[in-house]
Design a protein around this nucleic acid. Structure first.
Lengths: 246, 246
DNA sequence: ATCCCGCTTTGACCCAGATCAATCAGCAGA
DNA sequence: TCTGCTGATTGATCTGGGTCAAAGCGGGAT
């Protein structure tokens, strides 16, 4: 049951997220500097990476696995505010504490940079700051997209939206242009509920309904097959436009 | 009824948002460069600044007035995803179109920068990129805060949250530490509903309820007096903690 | 003055999703 | 094989906020 908590140190040049993470634009010499302040950390599914309010003395990229950012109210209501997939960035240069709980949802490996030197590099190597700005703007767009989901979509549309986001970001799918996809659902029903602003019962019922209607098929509880992604996008209420038939 | 659409050109050095906008960190010589690519535009309340999908050949700071970013689904459901107050930034370097409708909600003055030269300055003057990153990270935090509001708060809590956000950003309040505040509500009931993921009827009912309960007082429809801000924060369900009495 | 017209309030009713509760399925450990 | 536990499903009922409908209320134009 206990696994070692140490991942083998890795060379940046054959890092799986090399071309998508904060370091994407770095030149070899810049990478070298980063390598000096980086270290890997592994977490098991369910472990907390940082608690909201805690001091965070590093920033990090997700290398593999899935993590979540969640906010909790005093009475226990929870809202997930970010889903971190490989290459996503956590932490904010120029701030000590995390405003959110960061939790490993599957087994997780993160590439961490000590905060102080990373902040200094931000000032000296524009490639890092540029890439971080770009990623932050993308995340802001994603957050705003999600506000539409939370504020205006029905339960069924919410589920379909979440499934299509995960499907689209799945590495197997992203470089194929098939209509059908199969992927692993990295979240429990409860975590999905926290993301969608629903209860887990409603999540379960809507997934059953999508299955009944042939929009999705389940293989076990966690593996999802989508025979026609356009149908799913339709259910999500998004402007799929595409979908010219035949 | 028709007003002139041209604001008097202004010197950056006595700009009201000089120390909070994207240009906040610029040195005098950098400001000079910015001044060469900037121009002012004014909009009347209700006018659209850009439509979602339209090409946007500038980025801009709000100088005075209030604007909103909204997303609309095909069937007309609308969600506001950003509220732009003075010093806030609109537009994204490195992208042509706006993904949102940008609308003036009150009379509005914007300080616009031609996109192409602004993008070039981003590469050459780190002070602009640095400040933009900082502002974008702040906006991301605000968007995530708002996801909690949309996903988990009750109608009453949503209204209280919106009112306290506006109260806190009100210039009159922000440099006083009073318990009570009075401010203008820059939004119609419908716009509030679009922000909060509610209907305008529910907004109206909850405002009436807060008034009945003495949390707020109305002077006309648009001016709000909050006798005790802590009470309002309590209603918002936020961790106000502070509030040591006497 | 008075008549619009856009915004707001209020009421009556309804329904999507929450809540409460039972059951089920898969899996690790004894 | 059985037992216990965690997560998922399904059912029955309740309710907050949506929907539909009808007034109220200013403020500008005639």
């Amino acid at each position: 049951m206990l696994k070692t908590n140490i991942a083998p140190p890795q060379d940046c040049s054959d890092c799986p997220i090399r071309h998508r993470a904060v370091c994407a634009r770095c030149e070899p010499d810049e990478l070298k500097l980063l390598e000096e302040v980086k270290y890997y950390r592994s977490f098991e599914a369910g472990q907390t990476v940082v608690w909201s309010g805690d001091k965070m003395d590093f920033v990090a990229s997700v290398v593999s696995g899935v993590a979540t950012l969640t906010q909790t109210m005093e009475d226990g209501r929870r809202q997930m505010v970010g889903l971190l997939l490989p290459s996503d960035f956590v932490g904010r240069p120029g701030r000590h504490g995390s405003p959110y709980d960061v939790t490993a949802v599957s087994d997780l490996v993160m590439c961490c940079f000590r905060k102080r030197p990373f902040e200094q590099m931000m000032e000296t190597t524009p490639h890092i700051a540029q890439r971080l700005l770009e990623m932050t703007l993308d995340e802001l767009d994603a957050a705003r997209e999600w506000m539409l989901v939370l504020g205006r979509k029905t339960a069924r549309e919410k589920i379909a939206s979440l499934l299509s986001i995960i499907a689209r970001r799945d590495p197997v799918f992203s470089h194929s242009d098939q209509r059908s996809v199969t992927f692993n659902l990295p979240l429990t029903r409860e975590a999905m509920a926290d993301y969608l602003g629903l209860t887990l019962e409603t999540v379960s019922r809507q997934i059953s309904a999508l299955k009944r209607d042939g929009i999705i098929q389940l293989e076990g509880k966690r593996r999802v097959h989508v025979p026609d992604l356009d149908l799913l996008l339709e259910e999500a209420g998004d402007d799929s436009d595409g979908g010219l038939p035949s």
